[in-house]
């Protein structure tokens, strides 16, 4: 006869086994929980990295512009990029981007001329990466010193509205719009003189005309914020922009008495320089 003690042992062991058997699916279930949390973490870390890469990309762009190294600027754009700088009109695709930077802005010269200054500080990025990690938006500003030794010096400032796309694992600019806020000669300052936005190039015309007509200082324009208010979540609308922007006050507008003179292209101020 089996004694009570033995039956107790059997019962106890059985109970432990039973507990183990019940615990296995519980563990498996919690593994799935771990798996899901790891996946979420990986995604969030990837988005943080995306933001860091977008910041580096945009700031690196500024450092190349500083020195007019167009061959390094052009590859920063996606295949189908759309770029619009100041009032020069819209340039599209790799070829358009190259035309804009190397030919229109760069006047077919590489690098700074002797005595030239083209400082392009890229600052204050508000960046938002889409949850899928494939696109992003950014608002930045450029604070600019342009000059030619013993000829001219200019302060300028303006807003960048940028869209990014991740192509083959690399972040690139897919859309870039730069809106000039002011262009003012160093010797006079913004209270006394201001230049208008640069107009389109006749020699290397854009693929499409300027998409938005707007005033530079002494007029002003509020480039639409690509993000909602960070606290209220209210999106910015084109109607808001229209309400808070002037019309017909650009210095290039002949009717504007604040104009420093005729429309002025920053490029036209650059001296002729020998090809390199």
């Amino acid at each position: 006869m089996m004694n009570i003690k033995n039956w107790t042992r059997v019962g106890l062991a059985g109970a432990v086994m039973a507990a183990a058997i019940v615990a296995v699916p519980a563990l498996a279930q919690s593994d799935r929980g771990v798996e899901a949390r790891l996946a979420a973490l990986e995604k969030r870390v990837a988005l943080e990295e995306d933001r860091a890469q977008i910041e580096n990309l945009t700031r690196a762009y500024g450092y190349y512009i500083d020195k007019k190294v167009w061959s390094e600027v052009v590859p920063l754009f996606s295949k189908d990029a759309v770029v619009e700088i100041s009032g020069r009109g819209v340039y599209k695709g790799a070829k358009g981007v190259d035309t804009l930077f190397s030919k229109v802005i760069g006047r077919q010269h590489k690098g700074l001329a002797d005595g030239e200054l083209s400082n392009h500080m890229v600052l204050q990025g508000v960046t938002n990466v889409a949850p899928d990690g494939k696109t992003a938006t950014g608002r930045w500003r450029a604070f600019i010193q342009i000059g030619m030794w013993q000829k001219m010096g200019l302060w300028a400032e303006g807003t960048y509205d940028i869209r990014y796309v991740k192509e083959d694992g690399k972040w690139k600019f897919s859309l870039m719009r730069w809106y000039g806020t002011y262009f003012t000669p160093y010797d006079k300052g913004w209270a006394q003189a201001s230049f208008g936005n640069n107009g389109p190039s006749k020699e290397f015309p854009p693929d499409a005309p300027q998409s938005v007509q707007y005033d530079a200082y002494p007029g002003h324009y509020v480039p639409p914020y690509p993000y909602p208010n960070p606290v209220t979540g209210r999106p910015w609308t084109q109607a808001d922009t229209d309400r808070y922007s002037t019309r017909g006050m650009d210095p290039s507008n002949a009717a504007n008495s604040s104009s420093a003179g005729s429309p002025l292209s920053l490029e036209s101020q650059h001296p002729q320089q020998p090809p390199r």
Partner: peptide, 12 residues
Amino acid sequence: GSALLAAGALGA
């Protein structure tokens, strides 16, 4: 019973 007990212990 002993085997069960051992298995149970391992399981634990």
